[in-house]
Amino acid sequence: MSAGVDRVAAAFTRAREENRAALVGYLTGFDPDRAGSLERIFAACEGGLDVLELGVPFSDPTADGPTIQAAMTRALASGASVAGALALAAEIRRRFELPIVLFSYANPLISYGPERLSRETAEAGADALLVVDLPPEHAEVLRGPASARGLGWVGLVAPTTTPNRRARVLGASSGFVYAVSLTGVTGAPLNPGDPALHAGLATLRSASSLPIVVGFGVRKAEDVRALAGHADGVVVGSALVEAGQRGPAALGELVKTLRAGTLRA
């Protein structure tokens, strides 16, 4: 069985063969607590996620909107830690084959020790890192050790990114590239039919052979449907976290509807 960046690639290949976009779902580890988050993540995986973004909580998540901020605060209050999140990843891996991307901020990960983090991430069966406040200029500290372990490094391209910067982000990325859909934080309102957004995705597509996922503000199946033809994957975060607050069943249901939206016409 493949692992790391290969497992990520395989998930996108499979979705493409099924003529659909991959459904990438974000949930925060330890929200509302360890057991509760596992239940919710299992329900989401069973509902049909293709890729899981597992949030490793940070006290000061400046790129996140109120929903994910609050989830991280709840998670820290119930004892979340980097080691705890890695143990969660290992438990998820025992039950599911989907790629797991650790989503976090630089400080908790670097503080854990880049070598140790990379080794234990690979051992847990997680496959890639997405660190929102580590632009390519500063990424080497984690990206180097992670790449050495076969882990992917997910770079972000924003609507504000210049062509020069885009090349730099793509050069540092492996596994897939994350196209931020809007100029703002996670959970902000998005118009998924915006021609400028579609044009940006087309430009990015022509600049890279990596799978491209689009996210921030995607909430409903119709949002996913509107974007499925413009990217290799669509990310849903805040909406999943909110559904999770209504319980694992509600979350599983939402994932099923979102998954139905990934089919390309």
Partner: peptide
């Protein structure tokens, strides 16, 4: 236009090992 992933420290506004630009990509430009 400095292309290497990590330019010389003065290009990132570093004071010895401190400083830098650790922000989300949206803000980098």
């Amino acid at each position: 236009d400095d292309n290497p992933l990590r330019g010389p420290p003065e290009l990132l506004g570093e004071f010895g090992e401190f400083g830098g630009r650790y922000v989300a990509e949206t803000l980098m430009p």
